[in-house]
Amino acid sequence: MKATTRGTFLAALACVLVGASFTANSVLGDYPYAGGQFLRYGLACLLLLPLLGRGGTAPLRRLTTRQWARLALLAAVGMVGFNLAVIAAERTAEPAVPGVFVGCAPVAVAVLVPLLEGRRPQRLVLYGASLVAVGAFTVQGWGRTDGAGIAFSLCALAGEVGFAVLAVPVLRPLGPRLLSATVCAVAAVESAVAGVLVDGTAWLRTPDAIETAALLWQAAVVTVVGFVCWYMGMQRIGAERATLLSGLIPVAAACTAPLVGTGSYGVAQALGSALVGAGVALGSSAPARTTPPGRPARARERRRPGAVPRGRG
């Protein structure tokens, strides 16, 4: 299997897992937010540690202060902050509203990543990302909201974009497994601190049987499997192409909703799914970046150490 095909499959699997996890999120509405995040990411970190192997944490000692700050920001914005923004948005807005904003993440990443790397956005990737965003909107539709719902939905979009963009410079030195374990550990600490400051002693309680099952699913499947697959996919095909596949999140949610009686799959969902597929195909058809003639690849990497290699294996 080609590296690009494997990377696409891994990123797609991660997005499908996230989309299918919305059912688990729905049963955690009464559980303290910070406590749930602490248990989810803390357990995920513990599950990831055996996958690192002997000496698997050694690269952490070589990280700079700036890289540690980036990891802290990644956890705060792309994980803890993203989930909090979605929950806050859904207090005054229907779930489709933050979903539509998050569906615009491929467009933002298609513009931001090239600019941060000192190059121009690729037209095919940008066009494909736009199709994915339209498809995500078609799948979910629009719902009731107010100013607060829109504001928190924008925060959720920023979190989704940050989850991809902030990881680019630290993915190379850490690798997918160690990066996933590290940001989970940081997110667990951040969740605990936030919980104590906001909720005091009520920030954590023993979950009931249903909540325990939901938290285990989120930790073991959505976080451990999903994060590792996402970053392995991003390592192989780059952040721009990987984020195109985030359009599969609402598609997976729409496909699984009828199974639990929380929604239906109709003509709009089918049309939106087709648009997402077309956008992914169009964006993925863009030629991979190549090293300019006469300029060794190694020299380019020294100048831009944060860039993700195009051939992730």
Rank of each mutant, 00 (worst) to 15 (best):
L179W: 04
Q218H: 15
A89W: 00
I150H: 14
A110Q: 10
S130L: 13
L282A: 14
G238R: 06
P114W: 04
F137Q: 12
E190D: 03
P98M: 09
G283A: 09
P95N: 12
R205W: 06
A297L: 08
E301R: 15
S191A: 14
A268D: 12
L43D: 14
R91H: 15
W68C: 13
L245Y: 01
A96H: 10
G311R: 14
P169K: 05
R177I: 14
R40V: 01
Q269E: 03
F163S: 09
V280D: 05
R40S: 03
P95F: 05
C155D: 08
N83W: 00
M1Y: 09
R289S: 13
A268Q: 10
V189P: 08
M232N: 08
T182L: 14
G135D: 07
E117R: 04
S180T: 12
R312H: 11
F22W: 03
P258L: 07
G118Y: 10
R61N: 07
A270S: 13
T4I: 13
A96F: 09
W203R: 00
Y33P: 03
A72S: 12
T262Y: 00
I87Y: 02
F9D: 09
S284N: 13
A148G: 10
A88P: 01
R70M: 10
N83G: 11
S180M: 12
G135S: 06
F137M: 13
G272Q: 04
P59T: 15
A75I: 10
R310P: 07
V168N: 12
A185M: 06
R91G: 07
S264V: 03
G36S: 02
P207L: 01
D30H: 09
R298A: 15
L216N: 13
A164T: 15
A24Q: 03
G272S: 11
G53D: 14
G103A: 09
F38H: 09
L84V: 07
G283Y: 04
A252H: 11
L126D: 11
L124F: 06
S284F: 06
C45K: 01
F137A: 15
I150C: 12
E190G: 00
A219L: 13
V113A: 12
A270Y: 05
V267S: 08
A88K: 08
T138K: 02
A242V: 04
T262D: 08
A11W: 00
V170T: 14
V125D: 07
A253K: 00
V113Y: 02
P173G: 04
R300Y: 00
V267F: 09
Y33G: 06
A214K: 01
V97M: 12
G200L: 13
F82T: 07
T243P: 01
R66I: 00
R303F: 01
G238L: 03
V27E: 02
G7Q: 02
L248T: 05
G147D: 12
C184F: 11
P106M: 04
E190K: 00
R172F: 05
R303I: 02
P114N: 11
V196D: 10
F22T: 07
S26K: 01
A194E: 12
S21T: 06
L166C: 12
D30W: 04
A202S: 00
A20D: 10
V225M: 04
G55H: 14
P59M: 15
D199M: 03
V165S: 13
I87D: 05
L259D: 08
